[in-house]
Design a protein around this nucleic acid. Structure first.
Length: 270
DNA sequence: AAATTCTCCTGAAGGC
DNA sequence: TGCCTTCAGGAGAATT
């Protein structure tokens, strides 16, 4: 399940292959993703030069000489660079063609999306209103604390809200809160500036640590080279219900908040 | 306005 | 062995 570190790892993997290339077109085998793939994608892309492969949150932005391609991997998507004539597997929904090779999207659950937009990618409705990048300068303790005022939701739901900060998915929300010693169900507006300062730091540490390791993946992420993208990230609470907390030994508890599984140590997190 | 629930989809895992 | 049910989850849309 690609989270921000996996998306960044993918970006770094595919960028060198794409940047500077002229696209030859696209082959769409399955247009029904989270949103329909932009019609006539082949025609849209033909002759376009790739200026840059960027990232905003979990969105990949392929900036072209005219317009941009916005790609989201949903929760089971992966991208690889292959020979253009490599036989597609099931769930290989589309290829972006360039110079004898292709960028191929594989996405069994089809929660991903591929959209072409004429203007700057940042102006697209999907990207407007997104919160700051967790690894950027705008993501400060003061910002978090301010954004949390009068927010009565559980802090875990709060930090997973992409309007607050982008790219903090379920795994990293759980791990960041554990590292910060904050109970995931605590109301967002009942947390001090000092504790938000700690949380900001742990979110950054957890995410950048995962990027350094090449992204985590639990199930079906396959990196751009086709190798299983399973990197041994040390998860301290996620998925460890009943197992001892690595710090105090208390059994890790699991509950559901915001329709998502939440893991925490009842002793270390308050 | 804010919070919660619903929705898309398929593969993995568990039960019998 | 195999069929069935359940669960997982990013994030916008719909609902309360």
């Amino acid at each position: 399940m690609p989270e921000l570190p996996e998306v960044e790892t993918t970006r770094r993997g595919i960028a060198p292959h794409l940047e500077g290339r002229t696209l030859l077109g696209a082959v769409v085998r399955q247009p029904q993703l989270r949103y329909p793939v932009t019609p006539h994608l082949d025609r849209r892309l033909k002759g376009q030069r790739v200026r840059e492969v960027a990232r905003r949150g979990k969105y990949l932005l392929v900036r072209l000489s005219k317009g941009s391609l916005i790609i989201h991997l949903g929760m089971s998507g992966s991208l690889r660079v292959l020979d253009a004539d490599a036989p597609p597997r099931t769930h290989d929904h589309l290829d972006i063609l360039f110079d004898g090779r292709c960028l191929r999207l594989h996405d069994p659950r089809r929660f991903g999306l591929v959209i072409w937009t004429e203007g700057p990618a940042e102006d697209h409705p999907l990207l407007r209103g997104l919160g700051p990048e967790p690894l950027g300068d705008e993501f400060t303790a003061a910002y978090l604390h301010q954004a949390a005022s009068r927010r009565r939701v559980a802090v875990k739901n709060f930090i997973m809200d992409s309007h607050v900060v982008v790219g903090v998915g379920n795994i990293y929300a759980n791990e960041s809160l554990f590292a910060a010693g904050i109970h995931p169900l605590r109301r967002a507006d009942r947390i001090s500036l000092a504790r938000y300062s700690k949380l900001r730091d742990t979110i950054r540490d957890v995410l950048s640590g995962a990027i350094r390791k090449g992204g985590t993946t639990l199930r079906d992420f396959v990196n751009e080279n086709g190798n299983p993208g399973y990197f041994s990230l040390s998860l301290k609470v996620y998925g460890r219900t009943g197992q001892p907390c690595p710090v105090c030994g208390s059994p890790v508890r699991q509950c559901i908040t915001g329709q998502r599984s939440t893991f925490y140590c009842p002793r270390c997190q308050r």
